[in-house]
Simulated scan of single mutants.
Amino acid sequence: MGRTCVSCGALLPITARSHATTCSAACRVAKHRGARRSAQSSVGGEHGSTSRVRSVAMRYGITQASAVALLATAMCQICGTRAPGDSTWHVDHCHSTGAVRGLLCRPCNLGLGMFRDDPDRLRAAAEYLEKDHSAQPWVAA
């Protein structure tokens, strides 16, 4: 008896590669959707999936317990939003030491990146924004 598709149960063709577990592209998509759902439900929520926890822990050199605690905050450490701005939260970390600082939404993460994580540039930008620009000759009265 031949091998069967893990998604639909159909027999895999004899020409299927030895590592193939699905019979078609549609079954591959269904298999991955099912795996993603089960991982998410096992920990509770999209941002707490076991694969995301493992990935964050390994990438940033922290324990899985620390990764769970970090991802559970589910709030941007700069603006306080509870919406990540895209599919997932961004783990902010120091690029010189690798130390994890917290979670950021996409806009705040991009903003820090554009200012090259430089506090002096960020302070100068804040001062510029707070400055009264009405006296500039190019500002319409």
Rank of each mutant, 00 (worst) to 15 (best):
Q64M: 07
Q64I: 04
Q64W: 03
Q64S: 05
Q64C: 03
Q64L: 04
Q64D: 04
Q64H: 02
A65T: 15
A65R: 14
A65H: 06
S66E: 01
S66C: 08
S66W: 12
S66N: 14
A67P: 03
A69T: 11
A69Q: 13
A69M: 06
A69F: 04
L70K: 02
L71S: 12
A72E: 02
T73V: 14
T73H: 05
T73W: 01
T73C: 05
A74P: 01
A74E: 15
M75C: 10
C76Q: 09
C76I: 11
Q77N: 11
Q77H: 09
Q77Y: 02
I78L: 12
I78D: 00
C79P: 10
C79N: 06
G80W: 03
G80K: 09
R82P: 01
R82F: 04
R82H: 05
R82M: 07
A83V: 10
A83K: 14
P84L: 09
P84V: 10
P84W: 07
G85C: 11
G85N: 09
G85M: 07
D86E: 11
S87N: 08
S87V: 12
T88H: 12
T88R: 13
T88Y: 09
W89V: 11
H90K: 12
H90A: 13
V91S: 07
V91F: 06
V91G: 01
V91P: 06
D92W: 01
D92K: 03
D92I: 07
D92R: 08
H93A: 09
H93P: 04
C94D: 15
H95P: 08
H95V: 04
H95E: 01
T97F: 00
G98E: 00
G98I: 10
A99R: 15
A99S: 11
A99L: 06
V100Y: 02
R101C: 10
G102K: 05
G102E: 07
L103E: 03
L103C: 05
L103Q: 11
L104F: 04
L104V: 07
L104T: 05
C105K: 06
C105G: 03
C105R: 11
R106Y: 05
P107F: 00
C108M: 08
C108R: 11
C108H: 09
C108P: 04
N109T: 13
L110A: 15
L110P: 02
L110S: 07
G111M: 15
L112S: 00
G113I: 06
M114V: 14
M114N: 15
D117R: 14
